[in-house]
């Protein structure tokens, strides 16, 4: 594979590697927030099911928690475009 890569035009190789890097950045950045949002929403649903009268408060806090967790994925998203 290495000699195939070496035969390429260096500029093309660089652009290709940049694209691959951008993809890896976003993919990596999405793992943690994916798990985190799952935890936040799952626990919020448990809380709402246990105590339906607190649903309004739980929902507001859930959106806040999602916003904080999601920010990390969005940093990765922005970095993807910065790398290009």
């Amino acid at each position: 594979m290495l000699h195939v890569l070496a035969a390429q035009n260096p500029g093309e190789l660089q652009a290709g590697l940049k694209t691959v890097g951008a993809g890896i950045v976003y993919g990596g950045a999405a793992i943690g927030p994916g798990i985190g949002i799952g935890l936040v929403v799952g626990n919020a649903i448990t809380a709402m099911a246990r105590q339906p009268e607190a649903a309004g408060m739980v929902r507001t806090t859930m959106f806040l928690g999602i916003a904080f967790t999601e920010a990390l994925a969005l940093f990765g998203f922005v970095l993807t475009f910065l790398l290009k």
Binding site: A67, F68, L74, F75, V78
Partner: peptide
């Protein structure tokens, strides 16, 4: 920073 990027990145996405 996070406040600005959250809004920006969500709308861009």
């Amino acid at each position: 920073f996070a406040l600005a990027v959250r809004l920006f990145a969500n709308m861009l996405a």
